[in-house]
Design a protein around this nucleic acid. Sequence first.
DNA 1: GAAAAACTCTCCATCCACTAGAGAGTTTTG
DNA 2: CAAAACTCTCTAGTGGATGGAGAGTTTTTC
Lengths: 281, 281
Amino acid sequence: MREELLPIGKMAKLNRVSIPTLRLYDEKGLLKPRYIDPDTGYRYYDINQNARLDMIAYMKELGMSLSEIAHALQKEDITLVEEILSRKNEQIHEQMRQLKARHDAVERAIMSIERYRKSPATGTLSLEYIDRRFVWGIPCSTNFYSGDIHSYEKVLRELRLKLEESGFQQIHSYNIGTSITRENFVNGQFVANRIFIFTNRHTSGDQSAMHMVDSGMYACIYLDNYDDEVSGAGMLLDYCRENQYQICGDYLCEVMTGFQVFDNDPRRMFLRLQVPVSFEK
Amino acid sequence: MREELLPIGKMAKLNRVSIPTLRLYDEKGLLKPRYIDPDTGYRYYDINQNARLDMIAYMKELGMSLSEIAHALQKEDITLVEEILSRKNEQIHEQMRQLKARHDAVERAIMSIERYRKSPATGTLSLEYIDRRFVWGIPCSTNFYSGDIHSYEKVLRELRLKLEESGFQQIHSYNIGTSITRENFVNGQFVANRIFIFTNRHTSGDQSAMHMVDSGMYACIYLDNYDDEVSGAGMLLDYCRENQYQICGDYLCEVMTGFQVFDNDPRRMFLRLQVPVSFEK
DNA sequence: GAAAAACTCTCCATCCACTAGAGAGTTTTG
DNA sequence: CAAAACTCTCTAGTGGATGGAGAGTTTTTC
C-alpha cells in the first residue's frame, strides 16, 4: 500500500506481460511509469498501476486498438471505465455461452470419429438399444426419394436456411437425419416425413421445432452409400418381418459422417437406418 | 450430402472467415479447394470441408502456427486428430475456469468503483450491517504498527509470496485487510494479528488459510490515509464505549482501494476500520 | 439475351501488436 | 569490487491478417 516502486522487469512478471510490451504502452501513452529516473531513463512502476494494466487487458479483449485505449484512458472518466467494465462483463457471459457450444462441438467431433472408426461393414443388420435423442427440424415439403437428386438438395437447403434463421451456429458437424412415419414405413411407402439435425436438448434456437426421439430397441442397418437408402430400408423392413419384430415407431435415417478433416478419406460417410421395435411375449 | 460446391465467398460466409484468409490457407496448404477451375482459377469448396476449417480453428486456438497446422494435417493421421481434439477439450475446460475468474475480477472491479464513489468523508463513524465474507491470509510475523514502514512492507511481501505459491492469479485488485484480536483491541493494544485478502469462498488455492468472517453489525470508521489507522482505531474504540456497544469479535482494517486506473486520482484509497458489536437489551 | 451487379482472380502494400537482437549503460548480488 | 542480472534505445522482423488496384467471370435482373 505504501510507496513501492517496481522496475520494469518485476512489473512485467507480476502482470504476465513482456518488457517490450510495457515499453510500448509507455510510448503510446497507455501506461506511463510512475517515475522515470532522469539520469538513466529507467522506468519504475507503482504497484497500484496494475489495475490499469488489467483495464488495458479488458479493453484489448473488447477489441479496442491501443490508440483507442490510450484515448479512452486519457479522458479520466470513471463512468466510461464503468461502462467498459460492464460491457466486458457481458462479453464474458457471451464467451461462456460460446465456450459451452465449442465444447459440445468438440465432443461431437470426437464421438463422430469414434463412431466412424467402429462402424460395421455396409449391409450389417443389428438390433441395438439406442438412448433418447433430441432432433430439431422441419417437415419435408417434397418427397425426395421419388424425385431427382435436386429435390433432396432443395430440402436440405431449406433446413440450412431455417437453422441459420433460428440462430444456430456451427451448422456443420451436426448430423443430419430424415424420418418416415411408422404407417408409411410398414406399408413400404418410403415417403420422407421430416428432415432434421441431431442436437442436444439445450440449444439456443426455436424450441418448437425440437422433438424428442424415445430410447429403446432399434432394428438397424448400416450403409456406406447414400444411394442405397431405399433398398436398405426395404431390407430393414424384411429383417423385422422375418424376426417378427413389431415396428412401434417412426423410421429414421441417420447420416453419420465422420469428422471429415482429410481430403482423400476412403469412406466419407455412413448411414444407420433404424426403426424402433418391440417383441411379443 | 451430395456434391455441392461453394465459391469462395459462400464458403467464407458459412465459416465466418474472410476471403483472403481462405486464399491464404490455400496457398499455405491448410485447405485446398476441392476444385479449381483451370480456366478462371476460381476456387470451389466442398461443404464437407468446413469440418477441416473447424479443425484449423481449434488448432490455431491451441497456439499452433499455420505451418505447423499444415504439417499436422498433411499427415492424414486420424489418431493425431483425436489427440488434438482432446487437447482442445482440456483447453476449453481450462478456459472456462479462467473465464470464471475473469468474471469475478471484473465484478470486483465494478463493485470497487461503486464503493469508492459512495465512500463517506474521512473520519465518518457508522454502525452498519456487513454480510459474511471470506478471507485468505497468514499470521503476521512482526507487529508493523509499532515498527517502521518497512516492517509492514515485509509482511505484505510475505503475503504476496504465499499467494503466488498457492496459485492465486490476479493478486491485484483483491482487497487487503489486517486484523487485531478482540482482546488486544479492547485493551487498546493495537498489535496486528493476521494479514489477508478478501476473496470469495470458492477460490483455488490452499483452503486451510481460508477463514470466514461472520456477518453482523459492525462499528466502522472511514479513513483516507493509511497513516491514520492507529489513531482511527482509537477513535473507533472510544465510539464503541461511548455508545455502549459490546465488542464481540476481532477488529478488521479493510483497505478499500478503488479500481485505480487513473494516475492522478485525488484520493487513492480509503480504509474502513471495523469491529463487530452487539447491544445489551 | 444484354446490361448491371456481384463475385473472383493475382499481386502488392499495409497493418497491428509484438518479438528479437545489438550495443551500451546501470543495479544488485555475493 | 567483480560478476550477474537488469535496463536503456534503436532498428528490423514476425505472423496473420486486411485493403486496394485492375482485370476477368458469374449471376441476377429486366
